[in-house]
Design a protein around this nucleic acid. Structure first.
Length: 134
DNA sequence: ATTCTTACA
DNA sequence: TGTAAGTA
């Protein structure tokens, strides 16, 4: 199938599908016309790519992990022994990112709390007092 | 009508 | 990523 059909069947933009190829996530064949020719299995592959992206993995990691994943119809299953190690490392990276965000929120909370107890309101910047547009 | 590449916002 | 341009 050509890119238009794959885009329609997966709900992913043609732009994104070409980007996935650039990132080595998909390797469609080429016709003499230059048109990309995708295999039936690519429909499932694209869905798996979306799943992995949603898991916070980079396209680089997905590229090296995708060939080691088996798809039993509904779930992705690691097929290589060293795969779980790589995934665990990414999990640790997410944990660190989450901790950083929690720390950032705590700082904002402290500043916001300080503002609530403040009596004087030297709000001179109109950008800070304007009502939210929406 | 579709797709392709390149490039800019 | 979206989109426009200029093709094949």
């Amino acid at each position: 199938m050509r890119i238009g059909e794959l885009a329609r069947r997966t709900g992913i933009s043609e732009r994104a599908l070409r980007y996935y190829e650039e990132q080595q996530l998909l390797r469609p064949e080429r016709r003499r016309s230059g048109y990309r020719e995708y295999a039936e299995g690519d429909v499932r592959t694209v869905r798996n790519i979306r799943t992995l992206l949603a898991a916070g993995l980079s396209t680089y990691t997905i590229a090296e992990v995708l060939p080691c994943m088996t798809d039993d119809g509904d779930a992705l299953v690691p097929a290589c022994p060293e795969l779980t190690t790589v995934l665990s490392q990414d999990r640790d990276r997410l944990t660190t990112a989450i901790d950083d965000l929690l720390a950032a929120r705590d700082i904002l909370d402290a500043i916001i709390a300080a503002g609530r107890s403040e009596t004087a309101q030297p709000a001179s910047d109109p950008a800070l007092t304007a009502a939210p547009a929406g």
